[in-house]
Each structure stands twice: as structure tokens, then as C-alpha cells.
């Protein structure tokens, strides 16, 4: 158990080092979310002040969704097949998927926080309960990372993986996205925390289901 945790730690470290060495991919994603926020800001600029809170919230989560799909799609295509085979001989598939999910959660969290700060900076922030909003970002990062890592693994096995990634992941993300939108909206309106507790529990449950499924199903993907 302990040894396995050390191995997962080593794999997560490997992911971070890999990202740091190929910095263009990381910079690309950071620029992607900043660019997307800016495009939205300028597009709505003509009617500044008319951005209703609900539009503000939905727009932000849509940017998050597209960034997540783009950022996580490259999880498995960035390394060559030969090197993946090498990992296969070193570690169990469960360790690999757990390491990838941990790494992607971290990545999503960085992207979400950056996106949120830039978004709030240029478009103004009507959020009243900031800790809860950031909490929803955290839960979203875990859920997006877990479900998209598995889907990225599926899509990477096919040739036309960019389109496939989108069509496979959008319906999978939807239940999570709807619940997150609702919690984020509650946080924005500054409602009492107890109003969101049902949704938070359901999000946690969905996160748990997706994590368990990734853990169980990834070995079958890895084999092929």
C-alpha cells in the first residue's frame, strides 16, 4: 500500500516535470483560458452592464468546460506509444490513472483559479460567497479531471480524437456541469450554505462514481 502510494507520487511528479519541460503546452492552455475570457469580455462589451448574473455565471462555466476538454484531451496523446508501453512495464494501470487524475485535477484547479481571477477582473464579480464559489471550482476540477481523463483515454485510442473527445465528453460532463452551475449560482447570490448542501452532496457522489469507474475501467483501456 505504502509502496504503491510512493509509486503514484513518483508518477504525479513525472507528469509535473513533463509539463514543465514542454512548457509550450502549459503556456498554451493558460493563454487559451485568458484568451477565451477576453473574447467573451470584448464580445459583450457593446452592452456593458447588461450582463445579467445568470449569464455571467453560465458563460464562466462554459469557458471552464471548453478549457477542460482542450486541456485534458492531450493527456494521453502527448507521450509516444513506446513510452506508454514502458510505463506499462513499470507500474500498474490503476496507479497510472490515479496519477493522471491527480495531476489533471491540479492543472484544472490552476486553470480555474486563473480563469476566475481574470474573468472577475475584466467583467466584474457579482459573487457574494467567494469561498463557496471557489469550493465549487474545486469540486468541478475533481469531477472534470476524473471524467475527462477516462474519456481522453478512450478518445486517444481512435485516430480522429479531437472530434471524438468533444462528442464523447459533452454528454458525460452535463450532469456535473448542471449541478455546478446551480451551486455556483447559489454562491453568487449569497444564499445560505444549507441551500446548496443537496447539490454539493450530489456533486460529491457523482465525483465518487466517476473516480471509481475510472479506477475500475482504465485497466481494460490500457490493455489494448
Amino acid at each position: 500500500m505504502r509502496e504503491s502510494l510512493v509509486q503514484i507520487g513518483a508518477l504525479v511528479g513525472k507528469e509535473f516535470r513533463l509539463e514543465w519541460r514542454q512548457r509550450y503546452a502549459l503556456n498554451g492552455m493558460l493563454l487559451y483560458i485568458v484568451g477565451a475570457v477576453f473574447v467573451c469580455y470584448l464580445s459583450f462589451n457593446a452592452r456593458r452592464g447588461q450582463l445579467a448574473p445568470i449569464v455571467w455565471n453560465t458563460l464562466f462555466w462554459l469557458i471552464q468546460l471548453f478549457t477542460a476538454v482542450n486541456a485534458i484531451a492531450k493527456t494521453f496523446v502527448q507521450e509516444r506509444a513506446g513510452r506508454q508501453l514502458y510505463y506499462y512495464t513499470l507500474a500498474s494501470p490503476q496507479q497510472i490513472i490515479v496519477a493522471k487524475i491527480i495531476y489533471n485535477t491540479g492543472l484544472m484547479l490552476v486553470l480555474a483559479l486563473l480563469g476566475f481571477s481574470v474573468y472577475a477582473f475584466v467583467l466584474g464579480s457579482p459573487v457574494e460567497d467567494v469561498p463557496l464559489y471557489i469550493g465549487s471550482l474545486l469540486l468541478g476540477a475533481i469531477g472534470f479531471a476524473a471524467s475527462l481523463t477516462l474519456v481522453a483515454g478512450i478518445a486517444a485510442k481512435a485516430e480522429n480524437s479531437a472530434t471524438l473527445m468533444a462528442i464523447l465528453s459533452f454528454p458525460v460532463m452535463l450532469p456535473l456541469l448542471l449541478l455546478l452551475l446551480k451551486v455556483a449560482k447559489n454562491a453568487m447570490d449569497g444564499l445560505d450554505r444549507s441551500a446548496s448542501s443537496d447539490e454539493l452532496m450530489t456533486i460529491l457522489a457523482i465525483d465518487a462514481i466517476v473516480l471509481a469507474l475510472s479506477y475500475l475501467l482504465f485497466p481494460f483501456l490500457w490493455k489494448s
Binding site: I154, A158, P175, L213, L217, L221
Partner: peptide, 26 residues
């Protein structure tokens, strides 16, 4: 659509089975 993306039968079967399970869970 995912099934259409593979030529190899075993590979198609395994990967689409994984997606099938995920789809039901969602």
C-alpha cells in the same frame, strides 16, 4: 460513433464496452 472509429474488432469491442459502462453511469 465511437464504435465506427475503430477497424480492429477486439479493440473496438473493448473500448466501446468501457464507454458503455460510463454512459450508463451518467
Amino acid at each position: 460513433v465511437l464504435r465506427g472509429a475503430f477497424d480492429d474488432e477486439q479493440r473496438r469491442a473493448r473500448i466501446s464496452a468501457v464507454y458503455n459502462i460510463l454512459a450508463f453511469a451518467v
